[in-house]
Design a binder for these strands. Structure first.
Lengths: 231, 231
DNA sequence: CGCGGCTTTGATGTTCATCAAGTAAAGTGG
DNA sequence: CCACTTTACTTGATGAACATCAAAGCCGCG
């Protein structure tokens, strides 16, 4: 049957380049046996804040947001990210429970491996360990830098930042469908929904972007960059 | 001579518990040979943003701030921290250069070890590797959580947060000498200096704190906690 | 004792959140 | 497929929160 073949698709997974690059054939096979793929529809929750961490999870395809609920009950979005930057794993080695929730912004596929197996690999294979440390450090670095960047900007600078983030980091395209609501953008950059909308309208009026419902076209990239830097 | 003895003071260093707990006698000896202690006076810079990273450094005693300079030229304080939480090392494995500057807020002693030696240890000793990964993850987690916490608060909530941070995390005392200027607090919580001062004055008027120059006494801890939570 | 930096306080204006009211869009059940 | 409900979006008006500016007081240091 193609049972064996299917389970060992890992050998060709793009993710190998990132963390699993240092594994030998045998370990890859073991990984395949331990692995499970889960699909999530847009809007579904992948991890719940406070849940016990039992698995190592990485995003194979799709788009997710990492967020938490504040004391007052509203959402605070930590980051929005593509595959191989799957941040749920940020604290799997330092915390027993998830610090943040993760939900799918687009249909997503998540690979799940038992955490103990990863720990074992970590202890057995030092190159893998170093690779994982570097990966986790980079993810953390990126989140911290992003948060600091946003913090120093004013409203229009932050909105410009988000548009540039989608354009350059997420979609690599000046035209894209917003995967988030206006409210989610507001939760991400720490502003009110009304003002996010207002700023988008202003950008539209000034010819910096075009808006067709959820679809955004960045017309004047340069101007957006200036606003983001100034902001 | 006491040369040997002095170099092997590491055996008793408190830091052993944290990262170096898993090293055997031989490795500790090697560590001692590779180690250098540097003293910094209050105000001196330990690392410069952009400088090449060649050493693994941890804070043995003192207090430091981690910060960066924004495009507009002012400082943005990432965190303020005590020994064994020495965050300069956040990105030593993922970046070639320091992302942030570190300076001493109090007279500090820093232990410096060649980075390649630490990498070698990491690859050779898997328990050490796991310990280091956990440590770095925790430091990163703490910074991210702190930044998110600050972001969701308003002015008085942020000032209350900082006072609580010094009281509970840094000094473990309701009376302490502020190790930072009002401006540095402002740079830390992302507010203007004038408003930080104003808020401190308000707290004083309401009997929540007492101020004698740089010395602060927290009178009503509970009220401060309420303000910080609400904020 | 006089200079420069840090601190304080008040006055003013800008930025942003909030509220409200209306419109569009997207589900939902018959 | 249409009426109904709900949710997301939009815009304007208002007020609160906060930055900025300015002037004066304080303190340490040469």
């Amino acid at each position: 049957m193609n049972e064996k073949k299917k389970s060992c698709i890992c050998e060709n997974c793009e993710f190998r380049d990132v963390v699993f690059a240092y594994l030998d054939e045998e370990s890859i096979d073991q990984l395949c046996d331990n692995k499970e793929e889960q699909s999530f529809r847009k809007g579904e929750i992948i991890n719940h804040e406070g849940e016990k961490i039992t698995n190592f999870k990485y995003l194979k395809s799709g788009l997710v947001k990492l967020y938490r609920r504040t004391a007052t009950g509203d959402e605070q979005v930590v980051t929005i990210t593509r595959p191989f930057e799957f941040v749920s794993n940020m604290s799997i080695f330092s915390e027993e429970r998830y610090q943040y929730s993760v939900s799918a912004l687009e249909d997503s596929v998540v690979c799940t491996v038992n955490l103990d197996f990863i720990k074992e690999l970590f202890l057995r294979n030092s190159s893998f360990a170093l690779g994982l440390l570097i990966k986790i450090s980079k993810i953390n670095d990126k989140i911290i830098r992003q948060t600091l960047d946003i913090r120093q900007k004013n409203l229009i600078g932050r909105v410009a930042f988000v548009l540039l983030y989608f354009t350059n980091e997420i979609y690599n395209s000046r035209v894209f469908d917003l995967p988030v609501s206006r409210k989610e953008i507001a939760d991400y950059i720490g502003m009110s929904t009304a003002n996010v909308i207002r700023t988008l309208s202003d950008f539209k009026k000034e010819g910096i972007i075009r808006i067709f419902g959820k679809t955004i076209e960045v017309v004047d990239l340069h101007r957006l960059e200036v606003i983001s830097r100034r902001g």
